[in-house]
Computed example of a mutant assay.
Amino acid sequence: MMELSSVIDDYMAKTTGLKKFCDRCLKSERWSGDVVLMVVYAAFDSIGLNYFNSIVPKVMEFEEAFVKNGEVNNLKDLSQLPHEQVKNIWANKRSWSVAKSVASYLHESGRNRGLNDRKALREWARNTSLEGWKQDPIGKIGGVGLTTYQYLRMMGGVDTAMPDNIVKRVIEEILDKAEVKMPTNKDLEFIKTIDQIATISGYRPIEICWMTWLVQSEGDKIRMEKYRDTLDRI
């Protein structure tokens, strides 16, 4: 039997550069600090497509078509962009509605407090809670599940994790190797399990969460190696 912290160390050893990436996320600096792209990204990711092969390229395509030309400069612009204009890039109307609704809420809450988009996202994240997510204005938006909610919180500066299926599978694998029993079935309990693992191992919950994705193999490389340049971009 290996100690849990030793098992985590073995997995983490494969993810050189992970801390820097997570630091950027917690500083709301993903996607060059563009909150519009963070919201679009979280909304696109809500329907469970392949992260690197589907979601990231589509966000980049959206950036090229609407952000770089100045059509969408902020969350207000995003909240007013009809699906008809983006359906050639993103056909899923429900997840586009998520993007617009999240953008609208953050814009209005920021405007009322005199905050820019980045500060509005961070202010919202700072005042949210895991247990109260279903009562949160963003948690109440149709199509926003706990994973999307947690993703937005992380990009807003909260050190936490998501109950994504891949995250669960790898964490269960780790617990099995360490012969440790911790709850993983219910989403809220699972996130608290990652908090416990973080306390034991000395890594942050966000690092443990991202590690589970980046140690996945694609071809003859793990994602951390295959997509290292992309990670530096996003």
Results as ranks from 00 to 15, higher is better:
V167P: 00
T128N: 00
R169Q: 14
I191Q: 13
E64T: 11
R94I: 10
K140F: 00
A198V: 10
S201W: 04
A65D: 08
Q135G: 03
K27H: 11
E84H: 06
Y151T: 12
S129E: 01
K192H: 13
R30M: 13
D187C: 03
Y11V: 01
D77R: 09
P183N: 10
F52C: 08
I171F: 03
P137Q: 10
V180C: 08
E173N: 14
K19T: 15
E61T: 12
L37W: 01
P163D: 02
I47A: 13
N53G: 08
E108A: 09
N69M: 03
Q216I: 07
L146Q: 06
E63A: 06
S217P: 10
I194C: 11
K192G: 04
L81R: 04
D229N: 15
G139Y: 03
S95N: 14
E123Q: 08
V39P: 02
L188C: 10
V180N: 08
K226F: 08
M211P: 05
Y227G: 13
L78D: 05
F62Y: 12
G114A: 08
K100M: 11
M154R: 07
V102G: 00
V158I: 15
F21G: 03
L4V: 09
K27Q: 15
T212N: 05
M1V: 13
L152G: 06
C25R: 12
N112R: 15
L75F: 02
H83V: 05
E179K: 15
M12V: 03
I234K: 10
M182W: 02
A120I: 06
W133N: 00
L231Q: 12
G114T: 05
I141C: 05
P183M: 12
R94E: 13
E3F: 01
C25W: 02
V144D: 09
E173R: 15
L214R: 13
K221W: 04
T128G: 00
S201V: 04
D34S: 15
S97W: 01
N50T: 08
Y51L: 09
T16N: 13
R24D: 13
M38P: 09
F66D: 09
L18H: 12
V67M: 04
W124K: 06
N92D: 10
D176Q: 11
D23G: 05
P205W: 04
V72Q: 02
A103R: 02
Y51N: 01
T16C: 06
I174V: 14
V40C: 08
K119L: 13
T230P: 06
K19P: 05
N127V: 01
N112D: 12
R233P: 00
K20M: 06
G202R: 11
D10I: 08
H107Q: 07
E172F: 01
L106H: 07
L26P: 08
E108S: 12
G219C: 12
N69L: 03
I166G: 01
K221L: 14
W133D: 02
N53P: 02
T199A: 15
Y149N: 00
N112E: 15
E179A: 13
E179Q: 15
Q150M: 11
T184E: 02
K168Q: 05
I206F: 07
R153K: 14
M182I: 03
K14S: 05
I138Y: 07
V35N: 03
E71C: 03
K68W: 00
T16A: 11
D229W: 08
F66Q: 07
